[in-house]
Structures are given as structure tokens and as C-alpha cells.
Simulated scan of single mutants.
Amino acid sequence: MSKGRIQPRSVSRLAAVQALYQMEVSGVGVDAVVREFAEHRFDRDVGGPGEGDQLAAADETFFAELAKGVVANQAAIDQAIVRRLASGWRLERLDATARAVLRAGAFELLHRLDVPTEVVIDEYVEIAKSFFEGPEAGFINGALDAIARDSRV
């Protein structure tokens, strides 16, 4: 994510991706992870010393809605993603971080119609760029764009 003061919803999206990843790799439930973020992760620097990026500005309600919404709607979200994977690819074949980014983005595209499509795609592509240096951000861009075409008129 870019340097400087990060917008509250951007912070929430990044935190939601991290939470989804954590839930997948550790098996911890969504309520426990949401509580952990609220108690221990928000109000912390996300950059190095002196870089000034803060999680303090997180929209914690939006974060909880994203994390809980993905979990509650995961079967439909995963179906929307799988429809846009290359023939023969399974969701489990993707990196766990990429799955978390796609799930959070797909949730917003499917269930947060108040958020413009371009905002959703741009935000999650930027998040992908913060985790990956290769072609993953382009893949996520294409997949989310296709999911948006499938789900939004």
C-alpha cells in the first residue's frame, strides 16, 4: 500500500485480507480473529520506523463486516471465483493470500453494491501488489473484473 496516511476503508480491506489468511492457515474462527484485530492490531504502525502508516484509522465496523461477510457467504463467493479461474484450476491451487484477496474483493462486488466496482477492484489490486511482485496483481485484477461483470449490471 502507498506511503502516508492510509484511508480507513483501505486499512480495513488490508486487515480483512490478513484476517482471512490467518483464519485459513490457523483454523481460528472469525469472531476470535475480529476480536484479536480490535484488541491488538489496530492502532499499530504498518510501516517501518518513521514511515507513518497507521492502522489507527481503520474502520473497524467495515473490517468486521468484511471478515464476517466472507465467512458467511464463502460458498457463493468461492463459486463466483471458480467460475473465473482457468479451465482445470481449483481454488485450492491458488496461494492462500491470493485466495484471501479474491474472497474479500468478491464479497464486496457481490454484497456491497454501494461501493463502486472500480473502487473495489483498485483497492484489492493495490493490496495484491503489497503482497506479490509477480503477475498475481494482474490475475486478481482480471478475476475481480470478470466477477464484477458476472454480478453487477
Score class of each variant (00 low, 15 high):
1 M>H: 07
1 M>P: 00
2 S>P: 06
4 G>N: 01
7 Q>G: 04
8 P>Y: 00
9 R>A: 00
12 S>M: 00
13 R>G: 03
13 R>I: 00
13 R>V: 01
16 A>Y: 03
16 A>D: 00
17 V>P: 03
18 Q>W: 10
19 A>T: 04
20 L>S: 07
21 Y>H: 11
22 Q>W: 14
23 M>C: 13
26 S>V: 13
26 S>W: 09
27 G>P: 07
28 V>E: 14
29 G>H: 08
32 A>N: 12
33 V>Q: 10
33 V>I: 15
34 V>I: 15
34 V>H: 06
36 E>H: 15
39 E>I: 13
39 E>D: 15
40 H>R: 15
41 R>W: 15
42 F>H: 15
43 D>P: 13
43 D>I: 14
43 D>Y: 15
45 D>V: 10
47 G>A: 11
49 P>H: 13
52 G>M: 07
53 D>G: 13
55 L>T: 15
55 L>D: 09
56 A>E: 12
61 T>N: 10
61 T>L: 13
62 F>W: 07
64 A>S: 12
65 E>Q: 09
66 L>W: 06
67 A>W: 05
67 A>C: 10
67 A>G: 09
68 K>R: 13
70 V>K: 05
72 A>V: 09
73 N>V: 07
77 I>G: 10
77 I>L: 09
78 D>W: 12
78 D>P: 12
79 Q>E: 14
80 A>G: 11
80 A>M: 14
80 A>W: 11
81 I>L: 07
82 V>F: 10
82 V>T: 14
83 R>N: 08
84 R>L: 10
85 L>I: 06
85 L>Y: 06
85 L>W: 08
89 W>S: 11
90 R>T: 10
90 R>S: 11
90 R>F: 07
91 L>W: 06
92 E>D: 12
93 R>L: 13
95 D>E: 09
97 T>N: 08
97 T>W: 12
97 T>D: 09
99 R>D: 09
99 R>Q: 13
99 R>G: 08
99 R>N: 11
99 R>P: 15
100 A>H: 05
100 A>I: 09
102 L>G: 02
103 R>D: 07
105 G>Y: 00
108 E>K: 02
109 L>I: 03
109 L>A: 01
110 L>T: 03
113 L>A: 12
114 D>W: 06
117 T>C: 08
117 T>P: 07
119 V>S: 09
121 I>A: 04
123 E>T: 15
124 Y>P: 02
124 Y>H: 10
125 V>I: 06
126 E>D: 12
128 A>L: 08
129 K>M: 11
129 K>S: 11
131 F>L: 05
131 F>Y: 11
132 F>Q: 03
134 G>H: 05
135 P>L: 07
136 E>I: 05
136 E>D: 02
136 E>C: 04
137 A>K: 01
137 A>C: 01
139 F>L: 08
140 I>P: 00
140 I>D: 00
143 A>G: 02
144 L>E: 00
145 D>Q: 02
146 A>S: 06
147 I>A: 00
147 I>N: 00
149 R>T: 05
149 R>W: 03
151 S>M: 01
151 S>Y: 04
152 R>C: 04
